[in-house]
Simulated scan of single mutants.
Amino acid sequence: MQPQTEQDPASLALLSGWITRKDLAQALRVTVDTLGRWEARRVGPPCVRAGRMVLYRRRAVQDWLAAQEMPRAKVAGGRT
């Protein structure tokens, strides 16, 4: 899931911690348009724009996913 770049080692190293919007959409099983709406509403993972390319830092996506975690529901009688 690397951004499409020229295949020179410097480009690959520079973008190694980043994922494209298309690849993230596939990984999350949402559409590219959904990620765009999330960006506009500021509810999705943080991203950066480099020209026409939208990139997501892998660690920021992992942090965002962790923040979406829901607490376990309590079972009747006070047990979890």
Rank of each mutant, 00 (worst) to 15 (best):
S16W: 05
A73G: 09
E6N: 08
L65D: 09
Q26Y: 05
I19F: 04
R49Y: 15
M53Y: 05
R29A: 12
V48G: 11
D23K: 01
L14G: 02
L15R: 02
L14I: 03
E69Q: 09
V61K: 02
Y56L: 10
D33C: 08
L24H: 01
A67S: 14
A25H: 03
R49A: 10
A50C: 12
V48D: 02
G51D: 00
D63L: 13
V48W: 13
T20I: 04
G77Q: 09
S11R: 01
T5Y: 02
A10Q: 08
R72H: 10
W38A: 03
A40Y: 07
A27V: 06
A25D: 03
D63K: 14
W18E: 01
M70I: 15
V30Q: 07
L55W: 01
R49T: 13
W38S: 01
L65G: 10
T20N: 00
A25L: 04
Q68L: 08
T34H: 11
V54H: 00
R49V: 04
D63N: 11
M1G: 11
A76N: 14
R29C: 13
D8A: 14
Q7T: 09
C47Y: 00
T31Q: 07
C47M: 07
V32W: 08
R57A: 12
P9E: 10
R37A: 11
R41T: 12
W38K: 03
R57S: 08
G77T: 10
G36Q: 03
G51P: 02
S16M: 09
L35N: 00
P9K: 04
R72C: 14
R41V: 11
A67P: 04
V75Q: 12
Q62W: 13
A10V: 08
T20M: 06
V48I: 14
R52M: 10
L28G: 00
V32P: 02
V61M: 06
Q2Y: 12
D63C: 09
P71Y: 13
R41G: 06
G77W: 07
